[in-house]
Computed example of a mutant assay.
Amino acid sequence: MSDGHPSTGGVPGTSGGRSSSRGKRSGRVVGRPVLVSLAFLAPALVALLVLRLIPAVMAFASSLSHTSLVTGETAFVGLGNYATLFADPTFLQSVRVTLVFSLIVNPLQIAAALALAVLFTRRFAGVRFLRVLVILPIAVPPAVSAAIWSVAYRPDGLLNSVLSVLGLPPQPFLTSPGQALWSLIVLLSWIGVGYWMMFLIAGLQDIPTSLYEAAAIDGASAWARFWHVTLPLLRRPLAFVLVADTVSNFLVFAPVQMLTNGGPQGSTNVTMFDIFTRAYSVGDLNLAQAEVMLLVLLVLAVVIVQFRLLRGRD
């Protein structure tokens, strides 16, 4: 009799309906976090699209055209602007100055930041005060820092006054082709060393002290502990600092404009300042956009080489 009961035939159907409804609910549950994540990411994605990707595409398109300064007509020239730049001695000199500047200032800033980070992670009297003094230039805007150092670099400024007290002749810091670039390097190192030092201090504080204690028990010297413990475990923060510092120094502009205006004799005419000159002094926006594209490619090439070298060491 139970076989003929009408409810027995409906049990499989009922369980199937429940399982299908559960499947729909689980699909909704799985899909809901994705939608929530996209909702949170939407402002950043829109900002990336509007402020980065679209301007980059527009800049590349503009670099392939030329606008006549006489008639105002715009014509497609393809790679003509790039050919013009590679035939321009001013552009080639700006690339050389930028590369020399980066090859000097990057290792200098990173070495100084690393040395200060190692020093300030030790405990001694006045360490907090000294750390604040090194970090203090970060709070000053770059334009204000450039103004301060422009006064110090003057012929009757602070630095030449110190040199006269020491019995040394005054130096043409910003008016000599051989000293102007070095003067900018000192200024930018004064600004940047403390900033990069903070990242390295954070990396040093993440290294377990037990590793140093074990190395000391094994008889390792201070240099051996630094070389075999500190540097390997600090490689990721160092890689970040190296790449970020490289990009930052390739994009230096304000101190150059305020202190040297690209001179004397083009000795401080870095690529960013050359782009500014072409865009706003000469008025050739298309050629300036082409130079921006070349600068981006140069920065990407240098960063890729740095990543490969760091990966090779790993």
Results as ranks from 00 to 15, higher is better:
M1W: 08
G4W: 11
G10R: 15
V11D: 12
G13Q: 10
G16P: 03
S20A: 15
S21A: 14
G23V: 14
S26W: 13
V29L: 10
V29Y: 01
R32M: 15
P33N: 04
L35E: 06
L38M: 12
V46N: 06
A47E: 08
L48D: 09
L49F: 10
L53C: 08
L53K: 09
A59N: 12
F60H: 13
T71Q: 08
E73V: 15
T74D: 08
G78T: 08
L79W: 11
G80F: 04
T84A: 11
A87F: 01
T90P: 01
T90L: 13
F91L: 04
L92T: 03
V95E: 01
R96H: 00
T98D: 02
T98W: 00
I104Q: 13
I104A: 11
N106C: 15
N106K: 05
Q109V: 14
I110T: 10
L114A: 09
L116S: 06
F120V: 04
T121V: 15
R122P: 06
F124I: 05
F124L: 06
F124V: 07
F124D: 06
A125C: 11
G126F: 07
V127G: 08
V127K: 07
R128Y: 08
F129P: 03
V132C: 07
I135L: 12
V144Y: 08
I148R: 02
S150F: 14
D156F: 12
G157A: 01
S164R: 11
L168E: 14
P169K: 13
P169N: 10
P170K: 04
T175S: 13
T175H: 04
S176L: 04
G178L: 14
Q179D: 15
A180G: 07
S183Y: 02
S183E: 07
S183V: 13
L184N: 06
I185T: 08
I185K: 00
S189W: 03
I191W: 11
G194W: 01
F199V: 09
I201D: 14
I201Q: 14
A202H: 10
Q205H: 07
D206N: 11
D206P: 03
I207Y: 00
L211G: 00
Y212Q: 06
E213Q: 08
A216Y: 02
I217R: 00
I217P: 02
I217K: 01
W223D: 07
R225N: 12
V229A: 00
P232I: 04
R235S: 15
V241R: 02
V243R: 04
V252F: 04
F253A: 03
F253L: 12
A254K: 01
P255I: 05
V256A: 05
Q257S: 13
M258A: 12
T260S: 03
G266W: 00
G266F: 05
S267P: 01
T268D: 00
N269G: 11
V270I: 13
V270N: 08
D274H: 15
F276P: 04
F276M: 08
F276A: 12
T277I: 05
R278E: 10
R278V: 09
A279Y: 09
G283N: 03
G283P: 01
G283V: 01
D284A: 11
L285P: 00
A288W: 05
Q289L: 05
V292G: 03
V299D: 01
V302W: 08
V302E: 07
V303C: 12
Q306M: 11
L310P: 04
